[in-house]
Design a protein around this nucleic acid. Structure first.
Lengths: 221, 221, 221, 221
DNA sequence: CATGAATGAGAGTTCATTCAT
DNA sequence: TATGAATGAACTCTCATTCAT
């Protein structure tokens, strides 16, 4: 499944009626993703759940792929929106507060859409594999990079792009681990705590002896 | 695809002839995974490439799933073997050296099996989703936990299980990112450098002001 | 084959076009049953003969089993219809006339659909074996039981259900024997004659009082 | 399945060891027939249960068909043996006693091998369909015909071959019905009673007016 | 004689997608 | 524009049978 990097929408839903249909289809897609997973999703079931015919579904989405991609995109947009809403509060707060708030915000959304979030994991992995896509992480990485640039003075030196990349991917990985219950029964606050620590430890300047150690390490290499 | 948590092998390859066959099938599976990805893999193609009949394939593997799982398992075993070979050298080395060596070892294997490694990412994501499996990460997490316990004195306090989990997952996530070329053209040694930093920053005791900051954060929450 | 007691139809043929399709499929199934027998029937061949794609076939029938079951059901309905058409004529006729007419009616249909009838025998045997089904004999047994009850006065006493069961099964067995040519070259009339005798001998009162009772019956008629 | 009317045995089991093997295979076949039915039987399972390799099985039986046919044959021989053992006792008994004894003898064997008997029904139906076989009923029909000829004087006139055929087939049909539990919970003695009645009613001379009625009926036809 | 690994045609079935209505 | 019947390539997997060891 999920081959073509096709058009997102076959036609833009301009009329109100059309927008309602598209919305119903996307919601149905979410429910089917949750029920059956990416591989178990069938366009027929989506159409049935959305209360439209299969033909109508194909009027708005060129293929199965676009359906899933649209759901992921919407979910990413939702998280981005939540972040943009949360950031003004902490724009000038101490860095740990800022980081924790970012992690919390994403985590809260993941908890809210727990089942969907879990169902999307294989989809993201798949999209990451395709050169055509980046699983929609780009805007999020961009946001983190701009935060890093804004706080440059408090951070260790380094390539902001790379740092943003590392931060976003490690953050997501641990969040997903928690969503999947992989860490046993770790309470949400602890997960947030750990990720905050992970990110801060990575971004903050080295404590003095850390510096010397990595100095040695660098010498070795 | 990939539903059943079925038997790994349908029948143990007892005769020498059979072991050769199983090996040919697994190698063919790797090649097909690389060529077509998990979803594009078909048992027919695997059999053809292995130079055996489809029936023979099914004598040893109950289904497509078991085939992929076996490849992943072998790859995980390979990495584990590499780690166990590398560890004695650095068992008493400074922590950064130890961490770097671990990261390097895995990274080297990933580079060696680059294409396969990339192809396995969606498979791992899928397995993580299933409650039945942990994508074979357990032994690796176990190893990291034992390392953490051995170096307790040098690390910040914390739940070793949880720390191992966070370390392994964030490490893998960034390694995969690099395997997928997501970070643009970042040279391998830089990736190793960054992951080492990430892990050390997470495991080492907080610098004094970090403690105070997280104290503030905790107060906020 | 023939495991699941599944749905008869996967989807009711609503549009006229669909009804035509379903009919074509069922007719093709009959022809394939005749050509190849139950075990030799393949859905592919049925579809090809019906002039529809295999997918279309599976839109209406969940599996091979349902296909055969539907044919058997139609055939049973046909016989039942023929019986219901024939009965008014002989409802008040002497018992032997009634019995002979019933036997004749079934036999005529069997001769008409000779090849199909023969092909269905193993299918019926199979269905009888499954607890889920009664090979569609229930309505026919019901009809015979109601006839027995209507003619109670002329018959020996006994459990009507049991009698109907014995009558129907022995009748069918001998009819099939004849359909299969097992009795050598016995002309049809003789088969009807023998079955009539068999049924009457079973249902009529024993020897001495038989005379007096059937005398009454004749007076009644 | 069950196409070729092939050789019963590929080679005669002459040595004692071979006879043991053949016996184990046949017993295993019976058990698999009971467990899985004719269509569910696989040669592999039979071999495994028999404790021999699949290759060995094929040394004694040319194919799956021969396996099942041999089991049926053995069962038929068993019944025939039982009948031949029972007959001397009732050779000169009144006809109803003789008939009842025959029915009882078969029924007893069916009860003894209840599950197997049920599993064999579809096989018999299949064999009846093939022109190559008569499901092994011939010897049994022969025996009944010889009984009929021996008791000619007590019976109505008629073609002995035909009468034997009708008797055997209707008898078996009702016995199977009972084996399959089709008649609800009818106790065994009642089944024997009914079949005895059925057979006697068919074979005994008509009461006088039955003759005249069937005369009328014949006139009608 | 016994073994069981190997065979491979072919089975049933699915499902993304199209297009006549 | 909406429908849903029709499509059919492609899939996974089975199992009777053979034959080299």
């Amino acid at each position: 499944m999920l081959r073509k990097p096709a058009l997102r929408y076959r036609k833009r839903p301009l009329q109100a009626r059309a927008r309602v249909t598209v919305d119903a289809v996307l919601q149905a897609t979410e429910r089917v993703l949750i029920r059956r997973g990416v591989d178990g999703l069938t366009t027929k079931e989506v159409a049935r759940l959305a209360g439209v015919s299969i033909g109508t579904l194909y009027q708005y989405f060129p293929d199965k792929h676009a359906l899933c991609a649209a759901v992921l995109e919407r979910e990413n947009e939702e998280i981005l929106r939540a972040l943009q809403a949360a950031l003004p509060d902490v724009a000038r707060a101490p860095l740990p507060v800022l980081v924790r708030r970012v992690v919390e915000t994403i985590h809260r959304r993941n908890l809210l859409q727990d089942a969907l979030c879990r169902a999307l994991i294989p989809l993201k992995a798949h999209l990451l594999t395709q050169t055509t896509a980046d699983a929609g992480m780009a805007p999020f990485i961009g946001l983190v990079r701009s935060l890093i640039e804004a706080r440059r003075a408090e951070l260790r030196p380094g390539n902001a792009d790379l740092m943003a990349y590392v931060v976003v991917h490690s953050m997501e990985a641990v969040l997903y681990m928690s969503a999947l219950g992989g860490a046993g029964s770790v309470p949400p606050e602890v997960v947030v705590e750990e990720i905050t620590r992970l990110v801060l430890g990575y971004l903050l300047p080295d404590a003095e002896e850390k510096g010397s150690l990595s100095g040695k390490a660098r010498a070795r290499a």
